[in-house]
Amino acid sequence: MSGNGNAAATAEENSPKMRVIRVGTRKSQLARIQTDSVVATLKASYPGLQFEIIAMSTTGDKILDTALSKIGEKSLFTKELEHALEKNEVDLVVHSLKDLPTVLPPGFTIGAICKRENPHDAVVFHPKFVGKTLETLPEKSVVGTSSLRRAAQLQRKFPHLEFRSIRGNLNTRLRKLDEQQEFSAIILATAGLQRMGWHNRVGQILHPEECMYAVGQGALGVEVRAKDQDILDLVGVLHDPETLLRCIAERAFLRHLEGGCSVPVAVHTAMKDGQLYLTGGVWSLDGSDSIQETMQATIHVPAQHEDGPEDDPQLVGITARNIPRGPQLAAQNLGISLANLLLSKGAKNILDVARQLNDAH
C-alpha cells in the first residue's frame, strides 16, 4: 500500500501541473516587456503551470559599433537563445518575429505568432524639431536608422535628408537623439515604442507609400524545439490566425527572394473581405531603383483552434497545428507568387547589386 502511495506522490510531482516552463529572452527592456506579455497570456491559459524567465545577451546586443547589415552573420539576435533551447536550458524563446530568419536551424520551429501590433515605422524627432515631419525637416538634416530597408525607401522619398546608421537598443538610440546634436530624427518601429509606453515620442507614423515595413514587423514569434510536442501544444494558444497568415505570406515572399538583413526588402499586408493583399518591394541601397507589386488571394481566416493538420510540417519556419492547413498554404503560395513576379521584373539584379555594395563598404 505504502509503495503505491509513493508512486502516486511521484506521479503528482512529475505531472504537468508541477512543471516549471523556462522562457528565454534577450536582456533589453523591450525584450523583457514583450516576454512578460507572452508569459502573462500563458499564465492565464495555464494557471497550474509556473513560468521562469531567463534573460541573456546576444551577438546583436554586444556589437554596437557596426551596422547590422555589415556584421555579416545571420541570427544576430537569436543564436545564443537557440543555443540555450538546444541544450534544454529553456523550453521556449520569445523573439520579435522580424529577427527570426525565414529558414531556422534544424530542430527549431516557430510554435506561435502572437497578435500583431502596429507594424509601421515611426519617426521620433529631436526636441528642437518636435512638430515637424520628415518632409518639413531642414535641408541636409541627419536621420538615424539601423535599417537598409528604411534608408533606401526614405532616401527616395525625401532626397533633402541624409540617413546615417544608429545602433543600440531603444533606450540607447533615444538617448543619442536627445543628448547629442548629430541626429534631427530617428526611425523606429511603432510597436516597440508603444510597448515601452513611449507613445508621446511618436512624431509621425510612416504610411506604406512612404515606407513599407519589415517582414514580420510588429509581431512576436515564440520559438521552440520542433519535436517538443508538449510545448508546441502549450504555445499553440498564442497563435493569432490573421497575423499568422499575413506573416506566412510575408516570410514566403522574403524567403523566395532570398532577402535578408543586408538587402532592402519591404512588405505591406492587409486582410479585407476574405482577401489577403500582399505588397512587396525591393530597392537599391540608395533607393534610386525599385520594383513594387501587389497581389491578392482569397483566404478564409479560420477561428482559433479549428482542428489543424496533425502532421505539422513547417511552413517558412512556422508550425501551427491548430490552424487549418489550406489557408496557410494559400498564404505561402501568395508570397511565392509575388516573389516570382518581382524576380521576373529584375528584382534579383537589384538585390545582387545591393548585396555587393553593402559587402564592399
Rank of each mutant, 00 (worst) to 15 (best):
D178H: 12
L338T: 09
S45D: 12
V222R: 01
L244F: 02
N322H: 09
A249N: 01
D233V: 07
T298L: 06
L100I: 14
A303R: 12
P313K: 08
K79D: 11
V215D: 02
R195G: 04
L134S: 02
D228I: 02
V267G: 06
W198C: 13
I54Q: 03
A219D: 05
K157V: 10
L342T: 07
R175F: 03
T145Y: 00
H126Q: 12
A266S: 01
V93E: 00
F163L: 14
N322T: 05
K348P: 03
G236C: 15
D311A: 15
E73R: 11
H95D: 04
E179I: 15
K62M: 10
T319S: 11
R201L: 13
L234W: 11
T269N: 07
C211K: 00
A226M: 15
D228N: 13
G197K: 04
L137V: 11
W283P: 08
H207A: 14
D312N: 15
H199F: 15
T145M: 07
T269G: 02
G280D: 04
E73L: 06
G107S: 10
L234E: 01
C114A: 06
L92Q: 02
M196F: 14
Q204G: 07
T102F: 03
A191M: 02
E162M: 12
L245E: 03
K74V: 04
I231Q: 00
Y277Q: 01
L193C: 01
E139C: 14
H199K: 14
V143N: 03
K87L: 11
T66Y: 06
E210T: 08
K132R: 11
L245P: 01
K79S: 14
L206S: 04
D359V: 03
E86V: 09
C261Y: 07
H305G: 14
L193Y: 00
Q204P: 07
E310V: 11
C261D: 05
H126I: 15
A152R: 12
V39A: 13
N349A: 15
R325Y: 07
A360N: 03
P324M: 03
K176S: 10
A44M: 04
A112R: 00
I299W: 04
F108T: 14
V224G: 05
T59S: 14
R150I: 02
R164F: 09
L92M: 12
A219G: 08
D91S: 09
A40K: 13
R167I: 09
L245T: 01
F129E: 15
A360L: 07
P101R: 00
A226K: 15
G346S: 03
T41F: 08
F51N: 05
N169G: 05
G218A: 06
T190D: 09
K128L: 12
E306W: 11
G281N: 00
P264L: 01
E210L: 13
E306F: 15
A189R: 01
G308I: 14
G280K: 09
Q296K: 12
A55L: 10
V301I: 13
R164G: 10
Q292P: 07
L193V: 05
G197Y: 06
G274L: 08
L220Q: 01
E306Q: 13
A67D: 15
V143G: 04
L92R: 02
K348E: 15
R167F: 05
S57T: 06
N169T: 08
L193A: 00
L234P: 04
G168E: 02
K98E: 04
G168F: 03
Q275L: 01
D61W: 05
I186C: 09
